[in-house]
Design a protein around this nucleic acid. Structure first.
Lengths: 215, 215
DNA sequence: AAACATTGTTAAAAAACTTGACAATATGGA
DNA sequence: TCCATATTGTCAAGTTTTTTAACAATGTTT
């Protein structure tokens, strides 16, 4: 179905999806790669090329039907599925993730958190139960969650990963600082790395500063 | 001081910093690019080249002093500064950010949140006060925070950005879905985009699956 | 049915990134 | 002190990735 899809393209899909969703809400019915490209500040060529990785969704002389394209990209992204998420680690990061519910309407549902701290077990975060990490396997066997967010310290990440793999988890949303090597897909969010990069940019305020104006 | 530093290099710095910090804790005093490269699963050449963007920190025949290099990279990243952070928007995302305190020991301190919802104003999240967004300018004039995390809906992001720029904020940590165009550095964390990308990978489980084994 | 718009696709161009190589130079032992 | 060894800083080539331009094919609109 999909040709060999470059990394960058996969990462651009959510953005296309977002812009199309916005147009959809505004009642726009059709859109050309050119119009979209102007909105998104990319080249029309790139949009057509990106979409072409997955097939032809437009029509010559007409452009793209906004609803259809939005739908189609949603499908490509797998958003027609409903994902159940568990969060392993109920410390700062786990709490942050559990509090972030902005994706619920896209079919991502956090179901529970796990921790091994007796003080936390039995409690709740944002209405979600904190369960004993010792029950992880058991829980997975029964509830078969799809995605696990790893929010434990680096030292614990690898063993948690192994356990999750054995539990048949389909994908890892990694918030830990560990470099995870595994067969299932991993998507890493390094909040503190991005903060450090920001700090770096602030300290070396250079080219971003004088965009457009070279001298 | 720094040559023209490629994007990727800037993004690798936090990782180097992390690995060196780890070695430091273990009491390792010196390290060669080769040894480090084996740990980090990159080429020694790359490490040397990356570091070389900022100057020569090693010694021929010896390698790098772990403490010094760690320190140096910390400086490059600007971690010797202490940053004060405000969070604009106290909804799901703002709450998540406020709960994430993992970077406190690196000199990043969240000071306050801002919102325009009367129900939230006056409350506290993780011990931090939620202030009236109308007081943002005033607050900035007095406290001069360095970094602002934008955690408001897309529609509000642009006007918030303008205000923050005028307040003299040095860098933006963007959690909103807006594409921000401004003169100050922006570092974006798209949690839901990364989740969508993960969803995509799960649905198209291909090359990640059979790493090493082509057939 | 003609003029127009816009796609899908190809191939070239450009940019970004990685790697290998080696002279220069410090170390550490004899 | 001097030699063998280790390892850096750096250049330039090599590779991969990404972007862009171009246009025939083809549907739309009047």
């Amino acid at each position: 179905m999909a040709k060999n899809v470059p990394e960058v393209v996969a990462r651009r899909l959510p953005r296309y999806y977002r812009y199309l969703g916005e147009q959809l809400e505004r009642g726009v019915e059709r859109i050309s790669s050119r119009t979209l490209s102007e909105m998104m500040k990319v080249t029309a060529s790139q949009i057509r090329q990106d979409l072409n990785c997955f097939g032809g969704f437009g029509q010559q002389g007409y452009g793209y039907n906004v609803y259809d394209l939005h739908e189609k990209i949603g499908e490509i992204l797998g958003l027609n599925n409903c994902y159940h998420i568990i969060v392993v680690g109920a410390g700062n990061v786990g709490r942050a993730v559990a509090n972030y519910t902005g994706f619920r309407n896209r079919g991502f549902m956090i179901e529970a958190l796990f921790d091994n701290d007796p003080h936390l077990i039995g409690g709740r975060i944002n209405g979600l139960p904190i369960l004993d990490a010792a029950q992880l396997r058991e829980y997975c066997a029964v509830h078969r969650p799809h995605i696990a967010a790893i929010a434990v310290p680096r030292s614990a990440a690898e063993s948690v990963l192994t356990e999750l793999e054995e539990c048949g988890i389909l994908g890892i949303w990694n918030f830990s600082h560990a470099d995870l090597n595994c067969r299932i897909p991993v998507e890493t969010v390094h909040m503190s790395d991005s903060l450090m990069t920001l700090s770096y940019r602030i300290s070396h305020r250079t080219r971003d500063d004088n965009k457009g104006d070279e001298q």
